[in-house]
Design a protein around this nucleic acid. Structure first.
Length: 476
RNA sequence: GUCCCCGUCGUCUAGAGGCCCAGGACGCUGGCCUUUCAAGCCGGUAACACGGGUUCGAAUCCCGUCGGGGACACCA
């Protein structure tokens, strides 16, 4: 299959949904794998719900994920003439008809059926009327051919799927206000834009049947279809914007998730390549195929996403991670931009953080003047017993010069020397020092921490801790 | 309710009739390492929904049951 054409067709009625992101990803992967074209089409025919802000949000999210398109975005709202033309043509050929049943009447009928527990279908009131004038308010309905008994297709992931046409009713193609509906505009566009494979979520399986009938009525060859499994929330229901905040792609960015990890997570939720877990976009691109796409819906799993995120934190170039970390540090008041220690900070913290948010929090002690001591940590470690040790350390550390001596290896050696001289464990020395210079009990190795904080600031904080210890009521 | 799709550890999955008394990953958990926290390493826990067939042989094929999800708009 030489250069297949596929598309992602979101409607701009909100942020980019995680399910949408995965649909985009699978389309994108397929196009990239086979050297095809990935096109973007905006389905904005519902003018009441479509917004400019949503469009911007979706575009921004796709960019963040790195899913670039080759064509478009095309806007359905700018192709209205086309749909009108085809609707007229179908009407004149007797394959569609004007229907002037009012929405209110239809809703009432629907309710009657519902009360009687019978499946509702449009009853065809206007089906054989030729007297619905163009001027009167009306919708345009597709006329399900009487001769047809079943429609079906071979799905690229699900295999054969069929349905009795007797279950189908004459669906609405064009609204009273003249705007085309999804199933109609989608078919016209997919064909005119020469889409060869439609990849979409399984929630669209049922719309395939009416669409297939339309292709057949016009005499067009339908594209291939691939319905990918849904992503479910932990309540086992389709991820919805209302119930599941994690459905928002950009929320994950705010939470310090890397696009590489999010992509890795959603691709793995429904597609696999043997036992591979950590996959780069390049690898996915090389290996992706619908053969390996699963048929069952996957449940959202934040734990796994976190784990993958750390994997990517550790795999990506430290300079790249540093760059992405900066905004998170700045948001916490740390003047991080351009700081030469950034890469070292990343190296020191990436094994201790699952997200950029965690990393930024842990990096805070490396910035600013002085620290706020965690009372609990101080009470436990800044004791009368630790005072002579810290004093000894103070002397040794002060002898090191900022340029040559103030380095991880040398600093570790000094701490070790103090512990040996006092003939006690490293922990007894390192931990009070850690509390003194970071304020808390958690940090990278003590030498590394001292180096990152820097000579001047480390000594300042150490002095502050010692001063506190010297007060009558200090310590435990 | 009707129609459509699906059904391997708690979760994501490997598995295309013998390689499977089912492998990997997350999680949970025992240990090692260790200056804290992690990371890493070694080990453990836990699944073929059920019932019938087909076959020498079934997680894999067929049928039924049950279970789950999705769709049933002048939304997409």
């Amino acid at each position: 299959m030489p250069s297949p054409r596929v598309r992602f067709a979101p409607s701009p009625t909100g942020y980019l949904h995680i399910g949408g992101a995965r649909t985009a990803l699978f389309n994108w992967l397929y196009a990239r794998r086979h050297g095809g074209t990935f096109m973007l089409r905006i389905e904005d025919t519902d003018q009441g719900r479509s917004t400019e802000a949503s469009l911007k949000a979706i575009l921004e999210a796709l960019e963040w994920l790195g899913l670039d398109h080759d064509e478009g975005p095309y806007f359905q709202s700018q192709r209205l003439g086309l749909y009108k033309e085809w609707a007229e043509r179908l009407i004149s050929e007797g394959k569609a008809y004007r229907c002037c049943c009012s929405k209110e009447d239809l809703d009432a009928r629907r309710q009657v059926f519902e009360r009687q527990k019978r499946p509702y279908k449009y009853e065809g009131t206007c089906r054989n009327r030729a007297d619905v004038p163009e001027g009167k308010p009306h919708v345009v309905r597709f006329k399900v051919p009487d001769a047809l008994s079943t429609v079906g297709f071979t799905d690229r992931v699900l295999g054969k799927i069929t349905k009795e046409t007797s279950d189908l009713d004459d669906w609405v193609m064009v609204r009273t206000d003249g705007m085309p509906l999804y199933s109609f505009a989608c078919v016209i566009d997919d064909h005119l834009m020469e889409i060869e494979l439609v990849v979409r979520g399984q929630e669209h399986i049922n719309t395939s049947f009416p669409q297939l009938m339309l292709y057949r009525a016009i005499g067009w060859e339908p594209p291939e279809l691939a319905h990918i499994p849904l992503i479910l929330g932990t309540n086992r229901e389709k991820l919805s914007k209302r119930l599941h905040p994690e459905a928002d792609v950009m929320l994950h960015r705010q939470n310090g998730i890397l696009p590489e990890a999010l992509l890795n997570f959603i691709v793995r939720l429904g597609w696999s390549h043997g036992n591979d877990e950590v996959l780069s976009l390049d690898q996915m691109k090389e290996w992706f195929d619908f053969e390996q796409v699963g048929t069952t819906s996957g449940v959202w799993n934040s734990e796994k996403l976190s784990w993958l995120n750390q994997q990517w934190l550790k795999r990506l170039e430290p300079s790249l991670v540093a760059q992405r970390l900066v905004p998170f540090l700045e948001a916490r008041g740390a003047p991080a931009k351009g700081d030469p220690r950034l890469e070292k900070i990343v190296l020191a913290l990436r094994e201790r953080s699952r997200t950029l948010v965690e990393m930024a929090e842990l990096a805070l002690p490396f910035f600013g003047r002085g620290v706020t001591l965690d009372p609990k940590a101080a009470q436990k470690h800044l004791t009368a017993e630790s005072r002579p040790l810290l004093t000894a350390l103070r002397t040794k550390l002060a002898n090191l010069t900022a340029l040559k001596g103030w380095q991880t290896l040398e600093l570790d050696a000094q701490v070790k020397a103090v512990s040996e001289e006092a003939n006690i464990g490293m922990g007894k020395v390192a931990q009070p020092l850690r509390v003194a210079i970071t304020g808390g009990t958690i940090s990278p190795g003590i030498g590394e921490t001292l180096e990152l904080i820097g000579r001047e600031e480390s000594l300042r904080r150490l002095d502050a801790a010692l001063a506190k210890l010297a007060q009558p009521n200090a310590g435990a």
